[in-house]
Design a protein around this nucleic acid. Sequence first.
DNA 1: CCAAAAGTGTTTTTTATACACCCATGA
DNA 2: TCATGGGTGTATAAAAAACACTTTTGG
Lengths: 229, 229
Amino acid sequence: MEEKLPAFESVFSIDCLIFGFEAGELKILLIERNDEPFKDWYALPGYIVKQDESLDDAADRILYELTGLRDLQMKQFHTFGEVNRHPQGRVITVGYYALIRITGQKELRPISQYARKAIWHSVNNLPKLAFDHTEIFNNGFSKIRRRLNHQPLAFDLLPEKFTLTQLQVLYEAILNKKLDKRNFRKKMLSYGFLKELVEKQKGVSYRAAKLYKFDKRKYAKIFQNELTA
Amino acid sequence: MEEKLPAFESVFSIDCLIFGFEAGELKILLIERNDEPFKDWYALPGYIVKQDESLDDAADRILYELTGLRDLQMKQFHTFGEVNRHPQGRVITVGYYALIRITGQKELRPISQYARKAIWHSVNNLPKLAFDHTEIFNNGFSKIRRRLNHQPLAFDLLPEKFTLTQLQVLYEAILNKKLDKRNFRKKMLSYGFLKELVEKQKGVSYRAAKLYKFDKRKYAKIFQNELTA
DNA sequence: CCAAAAGTGTTTTTTATACACCCATGA
DNA sequence: TCATGGGTGTATAAAAAACACTTTTGG
């Protein structure tokens, strides 16, 4: 066992699961660590909570410092508190997740020296991760998968305007199974929170698909009971 | 703001939501605090996690010390980390819940001096609770309510042998709405994890109802997919 | 024989599933 | 004109909801 840093005697930390969607694949945001322990390993973006900030605030700040991403509306999913999960001392970590659009232009650059870089990695074939981050990932991913059927998580992953096929491909990526096209469209449209636009897809060499927007206000109206999630 | 105790500079704690069911009412286990802050107030059973114990272990120990209850299989539901939730310093607390049988004979007696006594209190008309415990209660209760339809939580609240009416009354208490008798029975029996006993209810002045047992093994078999909860 | 709760089926509505072809477009 | 994905409907099965009377028992 390595020497314990005083700062590490007993601390809270946050680890973030940030999901994105690109080229039909579900991705997760990882950082390459620049510090011991686990220097050079991939890890979830995460760091220590300060004395004077709430967990939610800490999650926002930490994600920003490690990836440059802001204003994500992350949610907590589980807290990990095994005694030896961190080799330098007692660290209890709260897992947060968010699902976001990968906007090609926005480059990810860590502010903190603690991460060398931040990269998107397919959720399939994840590399070995530092600490117990693989467990944290599995725990969070399975929760999101279960929540997908009750909450409009998927819409955060798509561009503002999207086709029904894009939406279906995304669902299939998250649930890891094929869905029936007609039934999927029927069901999605029946919810009533998809707004059909006049605009159509552009630049494709086949019949252009209709574009849709997710209407948050309608969703909130329809599901106000379940909103207490 | 009161003086900060050194021990409280930055600690993890556990707070427990223990649900019981008695006389057709859903109850929650509260302690009467014997220490400042919030001396004499009602609070959820909760205390500080030790350096060398996992969160799950801490939850077991703390509940035992405050109420005398053991071996409950509590599960975590949320972590509360607002900066000023504890007047003496930074305390981040992990909420755990369990649902248990109230066995009349087993008296609740706190081991620790920190709780004067432990009592069952109806979930309706809860008194004011210490710290942010009302918020913790609301958060946990609404999660349990939602989980009720997917997990066999309710059976932990009933005696080993129970009637279908008892089960229904319990569901109604948790969900806070009336259910249709025939549909309820049909659905419960269709799951296939209720074992009908030869034995019948005794000592009632009306037609005695059949008794049932919950068959955990069958449940596990049937729902092995969803078990990764 | 009465009060109290146990027990029981059918119909209707809603929701999920299975399944295959024509259409529009750009290259 | 062809390749590519866009778009559409119907029939069947399964699940949920609505609904009221007879039976058993102890007092």
